[in-house]
Amino acid sequence: MQKNGGSEKKKVPVIQMLVGVFAGLLLIIVLVFVLAILPLQNATEAYNSAVEEYNAAAEDYNSMLSLTCVDNLDGFPESAENLEMVNEDLFSVMKSFLGGNTAKKTQADIETLKEIMEYLSDDTKIMEQITAPSEAWVMERLGRVEDILEIQPVTSDNDPNGLLHRENGGYTACIYFTSTGIESAGDSPVSKGTDGGGAVEVYSTVQDAEARCEYLSGFDNTILYTGSYAIVGTMVIRISYAYTDEAQYEMTDRIAKAFTQLETA
C-alpha cells in the first residue's frame, strides 16, 4: 500500500509540469498574437489604403502625361505603374508574419509610398501648369529668367507668323523676348523676332506643338534657320541662332526651370 501510494504522489508533479508548459505556450501565443499579428494586420490594412491613394495619384499622373510633353525635362518617369493590394485576412497576415514581415516593415513601406505619391503629385502639378498656360503666366515666368531683358506678347496686328488663335495648329499666345549680349534690328522684342533672343509659343495641345517643331525642322541646316526649338508641356521654346549651340541649350534649360518651378505656400 505504501509503495502504490508513493507512485500516485509522483504523478502529480508531472501533470503540473505539463499544465505549466501548456500555459506558457498559450501565453506566448497570445503575446505574439497581440504584440505582432494584430499590429501587422492593422498595418496591412493601412498599407492597402496607401496603395489606393497611390494608384489614384498614378492615374492622375498618367492621364496628365498623355496631354503634355516632358521629354526635355529631367526626373519625370515614363509612366506610373499601379500597385496590387495585399490580402489582409488573418490567415494571410499570419503567413506574412512567418515569412518575416512585421508591422514596422509594413509601416516603412507605407512611408515610402507616401514619398513617391508626393513626387507624383508635384510632377502632376508641374505638368498641369505647363500645359496650355495663359499668356500672363508665361510672361511672369519669363521675367524670372536670368539674361532675359524685354518681354512682349504678339497681337493679331503684329504677329510675324500669323498663327495667333488660328484654327488647326495656331498658338494661343506667343511671347518674344530679348536677351543679354544679342544685338538685332528692330525697336521691340516682337519686331526683332527670335533673332533678338527668342520666343515662347503656347499651344492648346501637345500635338500642335509637335507639328510646329516638325515645321521648324524643315529649316535646319539652311540659311533660313532661326535657332533651336524644344517642347516643354505644350509650349515651344525657341532660342536665337545668334547664341552658340551650348548657349542655346543653357537658355532653354533656364526657361524650362522657370516654367517647372512649383510655388511653395
Rank of each mutant, 00 (worst) to 15 (best):
E8D: 03
N62R: 04
T68S: 09
G24E: 02
E146C: 02
I148R: 07
V145K: 08
E135H: 05
G143D: 01
M17W: 15
N48D: 04
T244A: 09
D109P: 01
S179G: 09
V30R: 06
I223V: 08
V86C: 01
Y241A: 06
T124S: 14
L163F: 05
M1E: 12
L163C: 04
E8W: 12
Y119R: 14
K9T: 11
L163N: 09
G5W: 10
G233N: 02
E214W: 00
I237D: 02
E183R: 09
V190A: 08
N168Y: 11
K95M: 13
K257T: 00
V145F: 10
S49H: 09
C69M: 00
W137L: 13
Y61T: 05
L18A: 15
A57M: 13
C69P: 00
V51Y: 08
E128N: 06
D71P: 02
L67R: 12
L31D: 02
L35R: 05
K10P: 00
K9Q: 14
C174P: 00
V70W: 01
A43W: 01
E115V: 14
I29N: 05
Q207G: 03
G197M: 13
S217T: 05
G193W: 09
E183Y: 11
E140P: 02
I175C: 07
E128L: 04
Q152E: 15
Y215G: 04
A36Q: 14
E45K: 15
L216V: 08
V93S: 10
S79C: 04
E246S: 11
P189Q: 10
V21M: 11
I239P: 06
A185T: 09
Q16E: 12
M139R: 09
A103D: 14
E183H: 08
N161M: 12
S156I: 14
E59Q: 13
A209P: 03
E246L: 12
T102F: 12
A58Y: 05
G100V: 12
L40F: 06
